[in-house]
Every structure is written in C-alpha cells, then in structure tokens.
C-alpha cells in the first residue's frame, strides 16, 4: 500500500527528512508521531504529492508518487482520503454540501450523492445535521464532517494530520474510535499525532520521527475493538436515503 525507500526532503538547504524508509500493508493502522516540527506533516504531504521528495522513492498503491507527472496527481488523490487538524470545511456550505461536493465534481448524480452522504454521515453520527453550516457545529462535529468528506469516495487509504489537535480529550477519543472503526472496515489508516495519550495502549504500530529520521515501534494494546461503532457504520436499513 505505502512503500518509502531512502526518502529525503530538503527545504532551502535544510534537511527535514533523512533516509526515511518504511512500508505499510493494506488494512494497517499506523501512528506517525514525533514532536512539533519533526517533519510529520511534510512526510504526509509527500504521500499525496503536495510536496516532492528531494531523493528516494515513494510508492502508494503501486504508483511512483515522486516521479508522477502533475496530470496524474488527481488520480492518486482519488485513491485516498485526507483529514486535517483545521478541518478545512467550507463555511458557506452545509454539512451535506461539504461532504458531497467531491462527488458532485466527479459527476455522481444528485440522488446517489444524497444516499452516499447520508450513509457516510451516519457512520460518523452526523446524519441528523445535513443542513447545518460548519459554524453551527462543535469542533468534534466539524472534524467528523471532515472525516466523512474524506471517506465518501470510499478511499483505500486514509491520511490524517493531527485530526484531534483542536479537540478536547473526550472529543479526541470519540474521533479516534471512528478512525479505529474505519480501519476495521478495511481502510488503511496513517495518522499523524504528537499526542502520546492517544497512542498509548492502542496496540498499533508507531513510527516516530526524530530529527528527520523514522524509528519503528509497537504500542501495547489496552482496550478492546469498538464493536458498537462497527455496527453503527454498517449497511443502511430499508427506507433510508
């Protein structure tokens, strides 16, 4: 799914990433951690070609991301969902529009868009806020909308950059449960966070960035999988849009 070989990244002569190599398989859930400024965001940006590596090779779903011509970048990005710390929701659009406008531009008919938006928002428990605007939602709800937007195109890979950075502990844990549920459904997740409390006890593989280098680790599990969330994210019942 994701393969990095000896990747380096320089910014104005300063080396931000040094000889980064790691692999992720389909269905993995991996944390990327490290202090602020360690290069987590840069590493994620390399994966969806918002940045180009200075050296080394990056393969995502078999596509050579670094050598890819700009015209193929949209194709790469359509295979993944991206979630940001600041949500990046459009303030003038409703929850439904925020979640579904990607599909609108991909030519998905209105009824199908409505059905998929409802289904995805139901998974993040916001199907009752379809007509709300982002400013009417709490931080946790906004992040769940952003997550729904990332998931609506059914990506194989979900990349999240500090998705709980603006949330309090309770909301952060709720959002983390969603990521876990999404991963159990088969989506590969790479989640960058500096919050060690979220990682602790997760039982997940953890990549730590330290002065531009990646250190491997595995966190011991301390909680059972969130079965209740999995049920909520299941198929739609009869009569639902």
């Amino acid at each position: 799914m994701i393969e990095l070989y000896h990747v380096q990244k320089d910014f104005r002569g300063k080396r931000v990433l040094r000889d980064v190599s790691f692999q992720m398989s389909r269905g993995d859930f991996v944390f990327l951690t490290g202090p602020s400024g360690a290069g987590k965001t840069t590493l994620l940006k390399l994966l969806f070609r918002a940045e180009q590596p200075s050296d080394g090779q990056i393969l995502v779903n078999g596509m050579n991301v670094g050598a890819m011509p700009p015209s193929r970048i949209p194709e790469l990005r359509r295979t993944m969902g991206i979630v940001f710390q600041d949500y990046k929701l459009l303030p003038t659009r409703t929850v439904f529009e925020n979640v579904s406008f990607v599909l609108k531009f991909l030519g998905v008919p209105t009824q199908e868009r409505k059905r998929r938006a409802y289904q995805t928002l139901r998974m993040v428990e916001l199907h009752h806020r379809l007509s709300a605007f982002p400013e009417e939602l709490s931080g946790g709800e906004q992040q769940r909308v952003a997550l729904a937007r990332a998931l609506i195109n059914e990506p194989e890979l979900l990349i999240a950059d500090e998705p709980t950075g603006n949330l309090d502990r309770r909301l952060a844990e709720e959002v983390m449960k969603l990521f876990t549920a999404i991963n159990v459904r088969g989506t590969t997740v790479l989640l960058a966070t500096h919050d060690q409390d979220l990682i602790r006890g997760s039982g997940r593989r953890c990549l730590t960035l330290d002065r531009g280098r990646v250190l491997e680790g595995l966190v011991e599990p301390s909680a059972p999988p969130p079965a209740a969330l999995l049920e909520r994210g299941g198929p739609l019942a009869e009569g639902e849009p």
Partner: peptide, 16 residues
C-alpha cells in the same frame, strides 16, 4: 481558494 485547495486534495481534475 479554500474550495480550490480542497478540490485539489480530493483529486478533482483541473478542468473541473
């Protein structure tokens, strides 16, 4: 601009 950024991030083609 935000919409354009987001459209790019989700892989919308340039002509769209």
């Amino acid at each position: 601009r935000d919409e354009i950024d987001i459209l790019r991030l989700v892989g919308a083609p340039e002509y769209l």
